[in-house]
C-alpha cells in the first residue's frame, strides 16, 4: 500500500550570516491511511518546521532547499501556489496547539466553518450552516445547534480545540496533522481530545500525524513514532519496538528523564546534560554527541554524521552495535 503522506529527504533552511542555517535536514517519513505517526522531539528539534515547510507554510525567509512532500503521490512542493492552497485546505487538515490563534475572535464559529466550506464547495449558505452543526456534533460539542452561533471566547480551551478539529475535518481530508493538540489542555480534557482524534481517524480512515513532546501521548495514541533531535530523525520504528527497546542514546535518555507515575519512588532522575544546540551552531558529526552518555571519539561521533540505519526500527548512532550488546 502506498503512503497517504510521505516526505523524502526534506531539508528546509533560513539564510544565515555566512551560509544557510538548516532547520530540518534530510527528513524522510511516511504515514498510511488509518494509521497514526507520532513525531516526538523537544523545542527546536524541527518537528513543527518539518510539517509547515512541507505544506508551503514556512514563514519567509525560510524555504525548502531539497526533498519532496508527497500527498497520495503528488509532490506538494511542485504545485503552483493556488493549487497548493486548494489541496492543503481540502485534503490535509491541520490542528495546532493554541486553540485561540486558529480562530478569529470577531467572527461567530458558524461563520468561520461556513467560510471554509464555501471556499471549497459549491454549496449554499444555509446548507453550509447545516453542515457546520453536523461537524460540531461530530466533534462532540454539546448542543451544537445552539452553540454554532457563539463566538470563540464563549468556548473553553478544550471546546475551542474541538471547533478547530471540526474545521480541520470539514472537507474530509486524507491526512490530519495535529501539532501538540493537547499540550494546552488539562489532563482530563486531553484524554477526551485524544479519544476524539482516534475516533475520527478510524471513522474516516485518515492518516494522522501527531506532533508531540509527550511520550505518554505517543504510547497511548500512535502506531509508529519518529524521534527528532536537532533537525533530524534520530530514531524511527513502531511504537511497540521503540518503547520496548529504544536504540538511540537520545531516546534512551528521554525515557530515563521522565518522572513516570508508576516508577519506583525515591529514585533519582537521569537528566540529559546541557541543552539542545542552536540550529546555527549544531556540532560537527552527531548533533547529540556533546550530551551523549555513549559518545566515543574512536567511533567518529564528533566528526562523522551518523546515518539512519536499520530496516523498520532504525536509529542514527555510530555506537549502535555497542548499545545493542550492552542493552
Amino acid at each position: 500500500m502506498s503512503a497517504a503522506f510521505e516526505l523524502r529527504g526534506l531539508t528546509a533552511a533560513v539564510p544565515g550570516e555566512k551560509r544557510a542555517i538548516r532547520l530540518v535536514e534530510d527528513v524522510s517519513l511516511s504515514v498510511h491511511a488509518g494509521e497514526t505517526l507520532a513525531v516526538v522531539g523537544e523545542s527546536g528539534s524541527g518537528k513543527t518546521v518539518t510539517f509547515t515547510s512541507s505544506l508551503g507554510l514556512l514563514p519567509k525567509p525560510g524555504r525548502v532547499i531539497a526533498g519532496e512532500a508527497l500527498l497520495e503521490g503528488v509532490d506538494l512542493l511542485k504545485l503552483r501556489p493556488e493549487e497548493l492552497r486548494r489541496t492543503r485546505g481540502a485534503r490535509i487538515g491541520m490542528v495546532f496547539q493554541d486553540p485561540l490563534t486558529g480562530l478569529n475572535p470577531v467572527f461567530r464559529v458558524s461563520e468561520q466553518i461556513t467560510e471554509v466550506l464555501r471556499a471549497h464547495l459549491p454549496i449554499s449558505r444555509s446548507a453550509a450552516r447545516d453542515r457546520a452543526v453536523e461537524l460540531l456534533t461530530r466533534v462532540q460539542i454539546p448542543e451544537a445547534a445552539r452553540r454554532v452561533d457563539d463566538y470563540p471566547h464563549q468556548f473553553s480551551g478544550g471546546m475551542r480545540q474541538r471547533v478547530l478539529t471540526a474545521m480541520a475535518i470539514a472537507l474530509g481530508p486524507r491526512v490530519l496533522i495535529a501539532d501538540e493538540p493537547t499540550t494546552a489542555l488539562d489532563v482530563t480534557v486531553q484524554a477526551q481530545m485524544l479519544d476524539l482524534l482516534g475516533d475520527l481517524r478510524d471513522a474516516d480512515g485518515m492518516a494522522m500525524v501527531l506532533i508531540t513532546h509527550d511520550l505518554g501521548v505517543v504510547a497511548r495514541q500512535a502506531d509508529r513514532v519518529a524521534v527528532m533531535y536537532a533537525g533530524r530523525i534520530v530514531e524511527t520504528g513502531t511504537v511497540a519496538e521503540v518503547f520496548a527497546a529504544p536504540r538511540h542514546p537520545y531516546t534512551i535518555s528521554l525515557f530515563r528523564s521522565i518522572p513516570d507515575i508508576e516508577a519506583p519512588t525515591g529514585t533519582r532522575l537521569t537528566p540529559i546534560a546541557g541543552s539542545p544546540p542552536d540550529p546555527a551552531r549544531r556540532p560537527e558529526g552527531c548533533a547529540f554527541a556533546p550530551r551523549c552518555f555513549a559518545v566515543s571519539d574512536a567511533a567518529g561521533c564528533r566528526s562523522v554524521r551518523p546515518l539512519l540505519a536499520g530496516v523498520g526500527h532504525a536509529a542514527s548512532c555510530h555506537r549502535q552495535s555497542m548499545l545493542e550488546t550492552t542493552a
Binding site: T188, L215, A219, R220
Partner: peptide
Amino acid sequence: SAVPRPDPAKERGKARIRPIGEI
C-alpha cells in the same frame, strides 16, 4: 487514570475512568 504513560502495552489495555465534561 487520564495521565498517558510511556508504556504502550499498559496504555492500550487500560480501562479509563473518565470525568464527564470540563472543570
